[in-house]
Design a protein around this nucleic acid. Sequence first.
RNA 1: GGGGGCGUAGUUCAGCUGGUUAGAACGCCUGCCUGUCACGCAGGAGGCCGCGGUUUCGAGUCCCGUCGCUCCCGCCA
Length: 591
Amino acid sequence: MCGALRASDAGKKAVLMGWVNRRRDLGNLIFVDVRDRSGVTQVVISEEANTAIHDKAELLRNEFVIAAVGTVKLRDSNTINKNIPTGEVELVADELRILNEAKHPPFLPSDTALANEEMRLKYRYIDLRRDAMQFNIELRHKVALAIRDYLASQGFFEIETPFMTRSTPEGARDYLVPSRVQPGTFYALPQSPQLFKQILMISGFDKYFQIVRCFRDEDLRADRQPEFTQIDLEMSYPQPERVWETVEGFLTAAFKAAGHQINAPFPRMDYDEAIRLYGIDKPDLRLPAFAEVRDCFAAPDLQTLAVHPDLPVIAIRIPKVGELSRKERDEIKPMFNSKGGARLFEDFKRIEKNFPEAAKKIQEKCAAAAEDLIVLVSGSAQSGTQDHPASKRKVTPQELAIYASAGLLRVALGQKYSARHGLFLRGDFRFLWVTNFPMFEYDEADKRWVAAHHPFTSPHDDDMDKLESDPAMVRALAYDVVLNGTELGSGSIRIHRQDIQRKIFHALGMTEEEAKSRFGFFLEALEYGTPPHGGIALGLDRIVMILAGAESLREVIPFPKTAAAKDLMVDAPTPVTDAQLRDLGIAVAKK
RNA sequence: GGGGGCGUAGUUCAGCUGGUUAGAACGCCUGCCUGUCACGCAGGAGGCCGCGGUUUCGAGUCCCGUCGCUCCCGCCA
C-alpha cells in the first residue's frame, strides 16, 4: 500500500499501485507521488539509472493509474519530508507500468481549494479520492463496525426488515413504489422500520437491531437527506434506563473507534427544563443556558419597555464576544425569528444606560464577564392571553414561543461568534438525554392533537387517566439523545396493550375504522401476547458527521443528493418511458 | 411554499460608480532543469461572464424572468 512504507522497510523490494497524485519533473530526475487510500509515497525515476523507465515517466499525468516496482530506499537526511508519514523513504523504480490513462479531471484530488458542490457531486468518484473523503468514509465504516460489534456482544440480533412496505399517512411523506402485479397500488419505502421492529418483539426476538436505510420525502437540510441510515434497536421488557445504557454503550464504543473517549451515563433533563433553560428540545450544552431576568426589572421598567409583565424575560449570554461595532450589532436583529410576538433587545448598552440597576442585576444573574454578549428576549405587552388547549402546561404555548425564539437566536449567535468564544472546538462532546416529552402536540391548522413522537409511544403510567380528559397534560415515555445541539436519536417505550393503543388513536381523532384500515394488522398482532417493549433509533450519518467535524451530511455519505433531492452523478430522478408507465397503470399528469 | 447567498477560463476567485482589448492563482500544453516534495524557470493555449429578456450610445456590472448549487424558515409522527 502507498501509505505503508517506513524506514524499517529500507532495502526491500516493493510494488506500489495507485494514482499519480503529483509529478515533479526535474529533467533527468522525475519524482512521482503515488496515491491510494492509505496514503502517498514518492517514487524516484532517474534518466541515469534507467532511460526506458524515465521516458515512460515523462508520459505520466495526474490521475493516471500506475504500478511501480522497485527498491525501498532510505532518503538522505536532507531530503526527508516530515509532512508525510512515508517521508523517510522513497521507491527507486526499476519497472513502471501505466495501468490506465486518465482524462484531465475537472478538479484534482490533491487540489487545496475545494471545488463547488455541483462539481463534487457530478464527479463524485474524483471527489471521493480526496484524503478528507477517504478519511470520512473509513471513519463511517469503523463507527458502524464498532456499533455492530457492541450490540452483537450484548445479545442483539441484526435482523432485516422490508424496504417495500405499506404506506402510512401519519408522519413524513412516503416515497412510493408502484406495483406492476397489482396495478394502481403502491408500496412505500419505510420512514423507519417502526412497526416491523415492534412485531419482531411480538415474534420473540427480544433484542433486535439493524443499521438500516430509511426514506423520507421531505425538504432537505444540511443535516437531512431523503435517504439516511439509522441505528435502529428494540428490546423487550426494558425500563427506559436499559435502552439508555445500551445506547451509551454503543456510542462509547463508536467514539472510541474514532479515537475519542466519552463519559457515560449521559446527563438527563426534562423536556420542560430544556425549553426553559435553552428554548429547544435539543440543547447545545456547550453554550451557557438562559437566565430568567424578569425580576431584575422594576414593574414600571417593564411597562416603559412595553414588555409583558407575566411572560418570561430571557437573557442570552454568549461568552467572550467582546465589543460589537454598530454594524455588528445591527446584524443581530435579522437573526431573530420572532414567534408569538417575542421581542428582542439586542443593544444591552441601552439597557445599561436607561436601567442601570436592572442591567447590573442581569449581569450578576448571568454571571457575565465584561467581554460577554448579552441580549434579552421578552414577550411584548400586546401578547394577549390565549385559550390554547395546551395553556395549562408547565410551559404555556405563549411562553414556549418566547423560549423558542430565544433558543434559535442563542444557537445562531453561538455559531456566528464561535471563533471568539472557542467553545465549539473539536473534541468536546456534550451528550444529553431529554425525557418526559409531552405525548401530544396541537396542530393549529387541523385543530387536532397529533402524536409528538409517534402514535405507538406509551403514555407515562401516571398520566393514563388524562388520555381522554386532558390530553395536553399527558407525558410520553419518550426520550431523545442529543449531542452538541444535534438530535442524534429518538425513542420510546411502546404501547403493548391493544386497549391503550385504541385510546391513543381515539385521542388523535382517528375513528375505529380508520385505525383498523391503517394499522389493523398491528392492532391484531398486539392481541396475541405482546411483551412490554421499547427502543430507539439514532442517525448514523449525523454521528459520523459530528465525529468528522463536518458541516453537512454530504461529507459522510458517499453518494448524497442535492438540496433538491437530485443525484447529480447518475442524474436521478428521471422521467420513465410510456411503456414502463403503461405496465404500472400510471399516467403522469401534465402541468 | 417563503427568505438569504452564490453562478466570470478546466478549477478557485477578483472585476469599484455601466465605458473601449475581461484579469490572477492553480491546472493544462511546449521547452529547459539530477534531490524535488504546493519543485523551479521561460513561453503558450484557454471565456456563450449560467440562460432568456429589458434599460442604455454602451451591460460581466442596472432591472425582470428563469435554471443550477447552497443555507435557513415552513415541513421532517
